[in-house]
C-alpha cells in the first residue's frame, strides 16, 4: 500500500468513532499493538527531544531501500501516536516519506495534539521521521 492508501485506511478506521473517548481508545490500541522495539536501539541517542514522556525512534533501510521505523514510548497515548506514524510511514522510500503530508491527523480528530508546544511531542516525532528520510537520501 502507498502512504496515501494507508492514510485513507487510518481515516476510515477512525471515522466510525463519534465520541472522542472511542477515538482515544483506538489510539491507545494502536500503541499496544506497536511491534516491540529492539532493545539495543532504546538508547539515549535515539530519544526524541521535546516530549514529556520518553520516545525512542530508530530507522534503517531494508534491502529494497525502504525506510523501516522502530519506536517505543513509556506513555501509552504517545506510543499510540508514534505507532500511527510508524504504520503510515514505515516501509516506504525515504523520498516518499519526506514529501508525505500529515493532513490525515486533522481528519482523525488528533490535530489538537499536533502543536510544537504540546507535551506529547507528536510534532517532534514527525520532524524526526522526516529528518531520517532526508538523511537516508543524502547517504545514497
Amino acid at each position: 500500500m502507498t502512504i496515501e492508501e494507508i492514510k485513507d485506511q487510518v481515516i476510515e478506521e477512525f471515522a466510525i468513532f463519534e465520541d472522542w473517548m472511542d477515538r482515544y481508545d483506538h489510539l491507545i490500541e494502536q500503541g499496544k499493538e506497536l511491534a516491540p522495539m529492539d532493545i539495543k536501539y532504546k538508547t539515549d541517542a535515539n530519544l526524541i527531544k521535546g516530549c514529556q514522556s520518553q520516545v525512542w525512534l530508530y530507522a534503517s533501510l531494508d534491502d529494497k531501500g525502504n525506510l523501516m521505523f522502530q519506536a517505543d514510548s513509556d506513555a501509552i497515548i504517545t506510543k499510540g501516536l508514534i505507532a500511527l506514524l510508524v504504520r503510515v510511514f514505515s516501509g516506504h522510500k525515504p523520498s516518499e516519506i519526506e514529501l508525505a503530508s500529515i493532513n490525515f491527523l486533522d481528519q482523525i480528530g488528533l490535530k489538537e495534539q499536533l502543536s510544537p508546544t504540546r507535551s506529547n511531542g507528536l510534532y517532534s516525532m514527525i520532524k524526526q521521521m522526516k529528518l531520517y528520510a532526508i538523511a537516508f537520501q543524502a547517504k545514497k
Binding site: 472522542w20 482515544y24 514529556q52 514522556s53 506513555a75 501509552i76 497515548i77 504517545t78 495534539q113 507535551s119
Partner: peptide, 13 residues
Amino acid sequence: GIHPTDIGILLDK
C-alpha cells in the same frame, strides 16, 4: 503503571 502525561491529555479532553 500509568504515565502522568497520558492522564494530563485525557483530563484536558
